[in-house]
């Protein structure tokens, strides 16, 4: 296998750049350049997350780490103006960037890993959307907490 370590920064830079390019052009610069993590949570999540993903896909392929990093990114994109495909499609960008950066081509193992990661991204996306439905239901419940408690008590269910 080739040593991607030397090209890591360049690969990561491209991946980040092309991912933030899915945001309005007026904003992508801000997402890429603002380094303060509290001012720029979206950019920060992308920077950290993509780096972790790259290291895993070209390295250990630790599924826990992958899931974690991917989850953070997908969670953000699941509530932004994206279709499911757009929200998760950033994973595939890596294949084309690796193709450009590695003269020997992308190893088949990595290609497979990218496919798996993309699939996982889609799964996590769906999970986020399901969570949203549940969270909404719980929010509604909280807003009638006292009424519900009073009814419970009337029925003698105690606390």
């Amino acid at each position: 296998m080739q040593d991607p370590a030397a090209r890591r920064d360049s690969i990561l830079g491209k991946w980040l750049e092309r991912t933030v390019a899915t945001y309005p052009p007026q904003t992508s610069g801000f997402l890429r350049n603002e380094k303060d993590r509290f001012r720029n949570p979206v950019g920060h999540t992308l920077q950290e997350g993509l780096a972790a993903l790259l290291d895993q896909i070209t390295g250990e392929m630790d599924t826990v780490r992958i899931r974690e990093a991917l989850g953070e990114i997908v969670r953000v994109r699941a509530v932004q103006d994206f279709t499911p495909g757009q929200a998760t499609g950033f994973v595939f960008l890596l294949r084309e960037i690796l193709g450009e950066e590695l003269p020997g081509g992308v190893p088949t193992a990595w290609q497979k890993r990218i496919d798996e990661t993309a699939l996982l991204a889609f799964e996590l996306f769906v999970k986020c959307r399901e969570e949203i439905t549940e969270i909404k239901a719980r929010e509604a419940q909280r807003s009638f907490y006292v009424r519900d408690r009073m009814r419970q008590r009337e029925r003698g269910e105690g606390t």
Binding site: R18, T22, E96
Partner: peptide, 16 residues
């Protein structure tokens, strides 16, 4: 992005 592959085509659409 030269020689767009199918997935890149969809990617280009993402650009607002």
């Amino acid at each position: 992005m030269a020689n767009p592959k199918p997935e890149e085509l969809t990617q280009i659409d993402y650009q607002p």
